[in-house]
């Protein structure tokens, strides 16, 4: 109570002013048509703009659900691509018996953790053995390749990033189809090195570099990046090519794990040779 009196002693005039001015303005908007209309219109504008903002926030909250739906759709679409099919076309005399079989299917996953600063980088994804992930499966993103699954638990898997010193990936170049081995020197996460492309190949900066399909990790024809720089070291028969990666590993959010449906057959074949 004493505090209230002190407040009035200190700010009484101002409070009285606010009270009287408030009454006056209330009268203005209550009894004058023009001011009344302007106030109503302004309040309407204010509330609609606020509603608009709240709408946008709730859209953002719903985005996670949308993302899962889109990932599912992408999974299905990717599995329908021609590169994901195994062609059973066989020619006997002139009759062609053609049928396609599913070769690659995909599992959508979100990146849990990621690093690009070390010379050996790993990612962690939120899909594991429960979802059908196994070691030695390839991981791609929507604009390039990401890495290879190294270890799995029930819910998570660890991926060896392509930004790793031990990365060796067969990659084809240009339209001629020469291929080399893609590796990383541990410096710039935007660039990788392509070696073992023979000197007689016709390579120039700007050529696309894509997956060769010689391994069971990645479907063939997936674009990795473009040629940035081409040099020939003295006394060598191979180019040293710097590849500008198409995807930015630093900003990865959502990726796809590649499942090769014929993998067991490949293993059986390997075992058969060993015997």
């Amino acid at each position: 109570m004493r505090g209230l009196i002190q407040l009035f002693a200190a700010y009484g005039n101002f409070l009285l002013f606010l009270l009287l001015e408030g009454i006056a303005l209330l009268l203005v908007v209550q009894f004058n048509q023009k001011q009344h209309d302007i106030l109503n219109h302004s309040l309407l504008l204010l509330t609609t703009s606020m509603e608009h903002r709240v709408d946008r926030i709730s859209e953002y909250i719903d985005m996670k659900e949308e993302l899962v739906k889109l990932q599912g759709e992408n999974q299905r679409l990717k599995a329908q691509l021609e590169s994901a099919k195994f062609s059973n076309a066989v020619t006997r005399d002139t009759a062609v018996s053609d049928s396609l079989e599913q070769l690659y299917t995909y599992i959508a996953a979100d990146v849990v953790s990621n690093s690009v600063l070390n010379t050996s980088n790993y990612l962690r994804l939120d899909r594991g053995s429960m979802h059908g992930v196994e070691p030695h499966m390839g991981v791609i993103s929507q604009d390039g390749i990401v890495g290879v699954v190294r270890a799995v638990t029930d819910h998570y898997c660890n991926v060896m990033s392509i930004l790793h010193r031990q990365t060796r990936i067969k990659a084809a170049i240009g339209s001629e189809g020469y291929f080399g081995t893609l590796s990383w020197d541990g410096k710039d996460p935007d660039f990788m090195q392509l070696s073992a492309v023979p000197k007689h190949a016709n390579v120039s900066p700007g050529d696309t570099v894509f997956t060769s399909g010689y391994s069971q990790l990645f479907p063939p024809g997936l674009i990795i990046g473009t040629v940035d720089e081409v040099t020939v070291p003295k006394g060598q028969n191979f180019f040293d090519i710097t590849v500008d990666l198409r995807n930015d590993i630093r900003k990865l959010q959502s990726v796809y794990i590649v499942i090769d449906e014929m993998r067991d057959e490949h293993q059986q074949l390997d075992e058969a040779i060993d015997e």
Binding site: E21, A24, N32
Partner: peptide, 20 residues
């Protein structure tokens, strides 16, 4: 003044501000 002008509140708010 507002009662004469038929604009209740208009002159009042301006005059209170001037007085403050």
């Amino acid at each position: 003044v507002d009662l004469f002008y038929g604009t209740l509140g208009l002159h009042t708010s301006a005059t209170v501000l001037t007085a403050y």
